[in-house]
Amino acid sequence: PTPPYLKWAESLHSLLDDQDGIHLFRTFLKQEDCADLLDFWFACSGFRKQENNEGNEKMLKLAKAIYKKYILDNNGIVSRQIKPATKSFIKDCVMKLHIDPAMFDQAQTEIQTMMEENTYPLFLKSDIYLEYT
């Protein structure tokens, strides 16, 4: 069978589908001061998954927490990678209390594209990954 670390090189999704892969990728991102990118990506997935079993109040609280931590500060690593239109859409949703499970989808896609084009290829060439393999 293919060892997991070879699978990680196939796609970002194969990497993010494996606990050890996530851990190593996060260690790399932390070195580069951009672990928030990964945390935000998982926060968006988690937010979407909670739609059926969580009350509205908790969803609102969570949406506000994600907005405050990753999007509100324009100098944050996540905020800088998200398009202004996407940010104002999310801000609108939070302000008008229009909480929708898909409200972070576009922002998540933008961060994912950035990771696919930038941090993920860098990770595959990094010492941290090469040493692990």
């Binding site: 993010l16 589908d17 494996d18 606990q19 996530i22 945390d39 998982f42 926060a43 968006c44 997935s45 988690g46 937010f47 998954k49 909670q50 908790k58 609280k61 969570l62 506000k64 927490a65 994600i66 405050k68 931590k69």
Partner: peptide
Amino acid sequence: IDSEDDLLQECISSAMPKKK
């Protein structure tokens, strides 16, 4: 009442794959 950070952390963990 959960703090915002706890809530976020819980949300992030819920999206991670389970140990194989």
